[in-house]
Design a protein around this nucleic acid. Sequence first.
DNA 1: TCCACATAGTTCATATATAAACTATCAACC
DNA 2: GGTTGATAGTTTATATATGAACTATGTGGA
Lengths: 158, 158
Amino acid sequence: MKLQQELKLKQPLASVNHEALLSLVRTSSLMQKLSDRFFSRYGLTDVQFNILMILSEHGRDGLSQQELSEHLIVTKSNVVGLIDRLERGGYVKREAHPSDRRFNQIVLTPKGEKLESKVEKSYFREVDKMMNILTASEKRTLIQAMERIRHYIVNNGA
Amino acid sequence: MKLQQELKLKQPLASVNHEALLSLVRTSSLMQKLSDRFFSRYGLTDVQFNILMILSEHGRDGLSQQELSEHLIVTKSNVVGLIDRLERGGYVKREAHPSDRRFNQIVLTPKGEKLESKVEKSYFREVDKMMNILTASEKRTLIQAMERIRHYIVNNGA
DNA sequence: TCCACATAGTTCATATATAAACTATCAACC
DNA sequence: GGTTGATAGTTTATATATGAACTATGTGGA
């Protein structure tokens, strides 16, 4: 569907720049909703799955909440609640750092590991299904264009 | 910066599909943060400005909260709080519908109108600055590709 | 007319996100 | 070795978002 109808705009978008921006934002927001539905089948949110996936890359020592916040690109205060909920579900544990008591080492439980590896397979199948709608050339253009936009934001918006 | 570093991934992204998807999601999230900073200069959030802009298109009769929720593509329960906060700030008013007492007609106050028109100018300047980083051809490709992705989501994810 | 159903808005529980203020711990330096 | 400053995590206030359950109102049919 055309953006103008999707957003119920009374007038066509006057500027291609604005149309391109809204295209991107609206698509990302729809992807978010699709991903909410997908992960809720496993009793997870997308962010929770992301944490499980990051932790599964990092083995027995896990990551501190500070490190997690850097991987997730959110504030450390946000991580507190995220880990609280995952801990309540039995998917992760807060363990003491052996030499520095300021740190929590966040590690997957066996239950968390099991769920992660199950969901991950299904997740990548869905990603392929959706993204194969684009041609290889479109994907290259997209990746490249998005990188330039991020470069602009990081160097100007901050 | 390359996505792999931005997301602190230990390994390069195995699939172009996943890389394209994360490009998009990560860029949209950075845009969100940029827009947070932009609108906070005016004491607004991006969603609040969006509401003001939608209302300014719709004149004296305004919109019901239900209609607003359709424009914003959020649930009606979310709109309650959004309008509460805008009303508290003096930017909008809930008015009674003349013939159907179920409806609130949401309209801009003069204060809301004034702020909207001021912020809007500045907003479009910023959009142009950022999106002019892309070539006209990249923007066309982006708009077109995003539309196909949204079509897929609406027809498969629902 | 009254009953059933639909519609608009609200409330509540929950999840995500930030910034600011706070506690606890550690490290470094004089 | 004690003060100073940095770092890790928590708490609180606020904003956004959903879905489910609720109230109030309107509509249409038997």
